[in-house]
């Protein structure tokens, strides 16, 4: 088999995942795109391992390790996303802008900062106080079901 087939496929899958990471708004969809990028790397590792005929089979061993680390990463990442969703009522990464206030405080006066501070714990101004109780109720229903 030509080596360019798996290499080009891995490149295209990686760039698809790159687009997903940059363009998606939901944090879980971003995690899905990260999984695509990791799978592209795994495909490259397996292809080059089969090509080089390594006696240690470092490519296949590293692929197994990458799969394990990706599984651990998705577990931790989902726990963080669920925690953020419980606290903020949203999992849209565009709305989590607590650390992105430098230009606003530089240009605006102090009252903008005060408005920011009162705005931020709510996350999305509309519909969040109604959203959080619904969420916990839904979770409890799933846990008992």
């Amino acid at each position: 088999m030509h080596l360019a087939y798996p290499a080009v496929l891995a490149v295209l899958l990686f760039c698809t995942g790159l687009y997903g990471v940059l363009a998606r708004r939901n944090a879980i969809l971003v995690l899905m795109s990260v999984e695509l990028m990791l799978n592209a790397v795994n495909l490259n590792l397996v292809a080059f391992d089969v090509w080089l005929r390594d006696t240690l089979h470092a490519g296949q061993a590293l692929t197994l390790f990458t799969i394990t680390i990706a599984a651990a990463e998705i577990g931790i990442g989902l726990a963080i996303v669920l925690l953020v969703h419980r606290n903020r009522g949203t999992s849209h990464i565009d709305r989590l802008r607590d650390l992105a206030e430098t230009d606003r405080t530089a240009t605006d006066s102090d009252e903008a900062t005060v408005a920011d501070a009162t705005d931020n714990p709510v996350g999305s101004p509309a519909g969040d106080p109604a959203g959080r109780p619904t969420d916990t109720r839904l979770t409890r229903g799933e846990a008992t079901a």
Binding site: N26, I28, L31, L78, V81, L82, H85, S91, G131, T134, D135, L138, T139, E142
Partner: peptide, 8 residues
């Protein structure tokens, strides 16, 4: 599971 829990 995460999609369902975050009310997607």
């Amino acid at each position: 599971f995460g999609l369902m829990l975050t009310r997607a």
